[in-house]
């Protein structure tokens, strides 16, 4: 019994993490305070990182935590802290599209369930392939996909310039 549980401990954790991630995501729709929503998202991301780790892609798990939680979400939290908490919108939760959105959600799930789930590939025929190593990933990334790599760096530069430009425009306007 214990052996069975231990042998399938990976799977159990995987399901547990997945469930927690789903719950955190669902919470995001219902929490009122942006800060709480942010915390829910962070937890969701961390659980996803756990899932990645359990799948054996540890470097993606690491980057999930580092980039998403460590950079993006920290940035987001700062932004929330910068803003005025007395703002009315912090208290109002939903837009006018609550009900249409809810209906849309149901329909979307229905459509996806009707379509995607039926067409999903079944359990892999034969044993799942060896999880690819970090070495294979790095080689593929820097030799085969070098162009995409470079393009993303260009994208990042563009984003930095754009952010600067937005700030600059703002300064000009406030001066004028």
């Amino acid at each position: 019994m214990i052996e069975t549980v231990l042998a399938s401990l990976d799977t159990v954790f995987l399901y547990a993490f997945a469930g927690c991630a789903f719950l955190s995501a669902a919470l995001m729709l219902f929490l009122k305070e942006p800060m709480r929503v942010a915390l829910a998202l962070i937890s969701c991301m961390v659980f996803l990182g756990g899932v990645y780790g359990l799948l054996g892609v540890h470097f993606i798990a690491a980057f999930q935590v580092l980039i998403y939680v460590g950079a993006v979400m920290v940035f987001m939290v700062y932004a929330i802290m910068l803003l005025d908490p007395r703002d009315e919108s912090m208290k109002v939760r939903y837009s006018h599209f609550l009900w249409p959105g809810a209906v849309g959600y149901v329909l979307l799930v229905e459509a996806l369930a009707a379509g995607v789930m039926n067409d999903l590939p079944g359990p892999p025929r034969g044993p799942a392939g060896e999880p690819f190593s970090l070495k294979a990933f790095s080689e593929a990334f820097l030799s085969e996909y070098w162009l995409h790599f470079e393009l993303t760096s260009v994208l990042l530069v563009a984003a930095v310039v754009a952010a600067l430009a937005v700030i600059r425009v703002n300064r000009k306007e406030s001066r004028g």
Binding site: A26, V37, I80, L83, S95, A102
Partner: peptide, 13 residues
Amino acid sequence: LGLTGVVIRRNVL
């Protein structure tokens, strides 16, 4: 869930 959140939530952040 994310898509629905975009539709129904009011706060930009």
